[in-house]
C-alpha cells in the first residue's frame, strides 16, 4: 500500500486538527438533519393529537414484520459500518473494504425489502386515497393523512439511505486507491457518522409509525 501523506489544507495547523474539524462539521450537519426529520415528526405528533383513534388504527395496519426485519438489517449494516471505520483507523485496507461491502449489501437489502413493502402496501390499499381503506368506524380521510406521513417519512429516509450507499461506494473507491490510513480514515469516520444517523432516524420512525398502533399475531405476513 502506498503510504500517502495527509493533504493538509492551509487553514489547519495539524492533521489532527483537520480531522477533528471534519468530524465536527458532520455533527453540525447532522444537527440540521435532526430538525428536518424532527419537523415532520412533530407535525405528525401534532396531527395525531386530534385523530389518535384513526392514527392508531392505521399504524396497526402497517407491515410490522417487514418493518421489524428491516430494523435488524439496518442495525447490522450499522455494525458493519462501525467495524469498517475501526479497520480504517487501523489502516487495514481489506478489512475496511470487506466491512464496507457488507454494510452496502445490508443497506441494499433494506431498500429492497422497503420497496417490496411499498408494493404490498399498494396491494393492500395502504395508500393515501380515501377508497384505499376499509374505514370501519373511523373517518377515512384521517387514515389517508397517516399514510401521507408514512410515505413522506419513510421515503425521505430511503433517499437518505440511497445517498449513504453512494457515499459508501465513493469511500470504498478511495480505500481501494490506497488512501488509508490517513485521509481515508477521516473520510471513513465522517461517512460512518452519516450512516449511523440514517440508522437513528429509522430507530425513531419504527415506534412513531409502525409501533404506535396495536398489532395482532395474524398480521405477521409478507
Amino acid at each position: 500500500m502506498p503510504a500517502e501523506p495527509p493533504v493538509l489544507e492551509p487553514q489547519f495547523a495539524t492533521a489532527e486538527q483537520q480531522r477533528s474539524a471534519s468530524v465536527l462539521g458532520m455533527w453540525v450537519f447532522l444537527a440540521t438533519e435532526v430538525l428536518l426529520f424532527g419537523g415532520i415528526i412533530t407535525a405528525f405528533l401534532a396531527t395525531r393529537v386530534f385523530y389518535p383513534h384513526e392514527f392508531e388504527r392505521a399504524a396497526g395496519r402497517l407491515n410490522v414484520l417487514i418493518g421489524g426485519i428491516n430494523t435488524v438489517v439496518l442495525l447490522a449494516s450499522g455494525l458493519g459500518m462501525a467495524l469498517a471505520v475501526h479497520a480504517a483507523q487501523k489502516g487495514q485496507r481489506w478489512a475496511t473494504l470487506t466491512w464496507l461491502g457488507l454494510t452496502a449489501l445490508l443497506g441494499l437489502g433494506f431498500l429492497g425489502l422497503k420497496g417490496y413493502e411499498y408494493f404490498a402496501d399498494w396491494r393492500d390499499g395502504l395508500v393515501p386515497r380515501t377508497d384505499g381503506f376499509d374505514p370501519g368506524d373511523v373517518t377515512p380521510g384521517r387514515l389517508t393523512l397517516f399514510m401521507l406521513f408514512y410515505f413522506v417519512l419513510t421515503g425521505l429516509h430511503a433517499v437518505h439511505l440511497s445517498v449513504g450507499l453512494g457515499l459508501v461506494s465513493w469511500l470504498a473507491v478511495r480505500v481501494m486507491r490506497g488512501e488509508l490510513p490517513r485521509a481515508g480514515a477521516t473520510v471513513a469516520e465522517v461517512v460512518g457518522l452519516y450512516w449511523h444517523f440514517v440508522d437513528v432516524v429509522w430507530i425513531i420512525l419504527l415506534p412513531v409509525l409502525y409501533l404506535s398502533g396495536h398489532h395482532e399475531a395474524a398480521d405477521l405476513h409478507f
Binding site: 392508531e56 425513531i204 419504527l206 415506534p207 409501533l211 396495536h214 398489532h215 399475531a217
Partner: peptide
C-alpha cells in the same frame, strides 16, 4: 410490546 393491549398513547410512549 406492540402486540400487547395498550392505549394508543401507551404504545407511542413505550416505543419512543
Amino acid at each position: 410490546l406492540s402486540f400487547l393491549r395498550m392505549g394508543p398513547a401507551g404504545h407511542l410512549a413505550v416505543g419512543l
